[in-house]
């Protein structure tokens, strides 16, 4: 998937959970990514963050640390 598309999709998820009350946004974004993103998508996200993560919402970057490690 193109990096732009991935950034767009991840930021959309972060935008929703940021709007929710409470302080669990990062955990909930992480859970959403673990539940719905196939391992190679999560791998791509981690690799992208490791490179520079440009354009990603900081909440995504925080959530990526908490999501399930992609199994191979």
């Amino acid at each position: 998937m193109s990096p732009d598309k991935m950034v767009h999709m991840a930021n959309q998820i972060a935008t929703f959970f940021k709007s929710q009350p409470g302080d669990e946004a990062a955990d909930r974004v992480a859970a959403h990514l673990s539940d719905f993103w196939e391992p190679r998508m999560r791998r791509q996200l981690l690799d992208f963050i490791a490179a520079d993560g440009a354009g990603l919402d900081p909440l995504v970057i925080e959530a990526a640390k908490r999501m399930n490690a992609p199994a191979d």
């Binding site: 998937m1 193109s2 598309k5 539940d35 719905f36 993103w37 196939e38 391992p39 190679r40 998508m41 992609p70 199994a71």
Partner: peptide, 12 residues
Amino acid sequence: EPGLRIPNMLDA
């Protein structure tokens, strides 16, 4: 692990 959705299949 969850699998690929249709748009994700095409991306992959």
